[in-house]
């Protein structure tokens, strides 16, 4: 089988990037290995765990389920870019205050999924927060503190009575 490479031009965290890539390279691996943006984590490589969640043209997607070559012309935002812009600051503070992470492997994906949830639903109930984060696995916290953090970040002080 050939190892043809393809030209790829895209915007990552506001910067224009051009590379030649093998078509089999996932967007997640491209971000990590070519651009050294290692905040995008690679867990299951089958779309189940959510650790590789990034923004593609403004919407959250799995970076392991897109080939980098498919991102031609796209605008990609990663946890690094969204941290720098301050967009995640309130969520990050709330995660910190609520100890919503232990090992931190899921955290970038959790933050991007939570930000996406709040974009579409600024005041979600705890049940809606759980549903919104249901595509992201955390193997440390048992999720409760993560739900607390998202609820706090969006000013939903409804008691943790579930």
């Amino acid at each position: 089988m050939s190892d043809t490479t393809y030209e790829l031009n895209l915007t990552v965290n506001g910067e224009r990037v051009s590379r030649r890539v093998s078509p089999r390279l996932s967007l997640a691996d491209f971000l990590r290995e070519e651009l050294h943006l290692t905040g995008t984590h690679v867990g299951c490589e089958q779309g189940a765990c959510g650790a590789c969640t990034v923004r593609h043209n403004g919407d959250q997607v799995r970076a392991c389920l897109m080939y980098a070559v498919q991102a031609e012309g796209a605008e990609i935002e990663t946890v690094e870019g969204l941290t720098e812009s301050g967009e995640l600051a309130a969520l990050q503070d709330a995660f910190h205050r609520n100890t919503a992470l232990q090992c931190g492997f899921c955290t970038p994906g959790m933050l991007i999924a939570a930000a996406d949830l709040l974009k579409h639903n600024p005041k979600p109930s705890r049940e809606q927060i759980r549903a919104g984060l249901s595509g992201n696995y955390c193997r440390c916290t048992g999720y409760h503190a993560i739900v607390d953090a998202v609820a706090e970040a969006c000013g939903n002080n409804e008691e943790a009575a579930e």
Binding site: D59, Q60, L65, A113, D116, L117, G135, N136
Partner: peptide, 9 residues
Amino acid sequence: IAHAAIRNR
């Protein structure tokens, strides 16, 4: 259907 990130794609 699946989760928000999957539904976007």
